[in-house]
Design a protein around this nucleic acid. Structure first.
Lengths: 156, 156
DNA sequence: CCCCGGATGAGACTGAGTATCAGGCAAGCC
DNA sequence: GGCTTGCCTGATACTCAGTCTCATCCGGGG
């Protein structure tokens, strides 16, 4: 099943209605190459001449976030964006600072490290967040041209 | 030398003027118990009947951030705040989700882990960020009362 | 096919942060 | 101590992401 369907399915499984707006949003999210913002989605919706309200986009992103279909990133440049990701296990993101593509990284050893840091400081750790930023193999390998081609928000 | 002086000194050392506004801001920042926002500082300035513009606060925080005297945190509840911290080495923050107090945590093993994750995925890692949230010993030990007493933004 | 609660879009609102600009003042110079 | 210069400041307008409200709409169970 393709990404769009996976997202629509996630809505259904959680007991939410399947509506044209949500289907559209699912397509837009699934068609994103890297991370994207609510404004990106709105733009792409407008490009398709689809009529969807800003509020609806924020509501859908909020839902998808709570369903762990997407996650919110805080980028180093103090803006933020969403990325699609694996809903099944706790993980972190390795984000390309050029094209925005993101790889899910399993928590692995980190859990142990986090635990130890907490213990050493007497804190009871509740949550942690690790975000890694760098240049992905694609952007590194083929230079700026590929980076542009791979730019975020490709054909929806 | 106390924290206020340390901050004022940081301005001077970097070649910036020492002005009443900056001195005030230094005091407010130094007097913060945990993390704080620009709005918090503005409130506390007003409480002292000190006249300082919003823009000035943001400018000072921006400077202090660039001097690594404070750092910006992205809190789990999607808001953000600043904390004072050690300007001398790369580190992360362990933040109390109740009182906002923050402990600097040396990078240590993490660097190795980050490096390995990058290598495994073919990324050239540029920066990373780790943020830990939990309950500090003070809040855990003495319950809600102490947590309130220790609340952020104590006597400036 | 009807009904109703969930979903929607428009638009007002908020709060953090930025830009602009005229006036103020720190600090080096004499 | 006065002068000058350029950094610094406060007020204010603005932007941008996200939220709230509310009248209307419509998916889907009965």
């Amino acid at each position: 099943m393709d990404q769009t369907t996976r997202i629509v399915r996630a809505f259904e499984d959680a007991g939410y209605q399947t509506t044209p707006s949500r289907r559209l949003l699912a397509e837009l999210v699934a068609g994103s190459r890297g991370h994207f913002s609510a404004a990106d989605l709105l733009d792409r919706a407008r490009q398709r001449r689809a009529k969807v309200g800003r509020a609806t986009i924020f509501r859908a992103l909020e839902l998808l976030t709570s369903l762990h279909v997407v996650e919110r990133l805080d980028l180093p440049n103090r803006s933020h964006a969403y990325v699609m990701c694996d809903p099944d296990e706790h993980h972190h993101h390795l984000v390309c600072s050029r094209c925005g593509r993101s790889v899910d990284v399993a928590d692995g050893e980190l859990a142990r490290l986090v635990d130890e840091i907490g213990r050493r400081n007497g804190y009871r750790i509740e949550t942690h967040r690790l975000e890694l930023f760098g240049i992905c193999p694609l952007c590194a390998g083929t230079g700026a041209a590929a980076a542009v081609a791979a730019d975020r928000g490709g054909p929806a």
